[in-house]
């Protein structure tokens, strides 16, 4: 399982890629693997306001539906339209083609409170052990 070093991570298994004042957001390799085959992604509308720690999207697999929590607060400025016809991209390429939205951050320093790759991996090991 891969956790790229240039991303930041949440305990709810979302990732963030900082692009200037914007944050690209998706779910991690761990999250997509746990979900199984993704068959539907409910992507928020352009201009939607998202709150760090609140639900902003849903990812649904053949067996269940999972909330996706916003890692940072801000406004949706890009949404991955291609997930409408190809939700499997979340499974196939979670850090690339499977991104969900880009958020213009209200406070870019929020990213500092997210985990780096090493911390996220350690967090998951502690979860697995518990």
């Amino acid at each position: 399982m891969e956790f790229p070093g240039d991303l930041r991570y949440t305990k709810e298994h979302e990732w963030v890629r900082v692009e200037g004042t914007r944050a690209r957001v998706g779910i991690t390799d761990f999250a997509q693997d746990a979900l199984g085959d993704v068959v539907y992604v409910d992507v928020p509308e352009m201009g939607a306001s998202v709150q760090a720690g609140s639900t902003f999207a849903e990812v649904e697999s053949t067996k269940s539906v999972s909330d996706v929590y916003a890692p940072v607060s801000g406004t949706v400025v890009e949404r991955n339209e291609s997930l409408g016809d190809a939700p499997e991209r979340v499974n196939e390429d979670p850090y690339g083609e499977g991104w969900i939205v880009v958020v213009e951050m209200g406070d870019p320093s929020q990213v500092d409170s997210l985990m780096d790759a090493a911390t996220y991996e350690a967090f998951m090991r502690s979860q697995a052990g518990g």
Binding site: D37, V39, S61, T62, K63, N91
Partner: peptide, 9 residues
């Protein structure tokens, strides 16, 4: 077993 390669496949 819940799934092997994946439910869709």
């Amino acid at each position: 077993p819940i799934e092997y390669a994946g439910t869709l496949a």
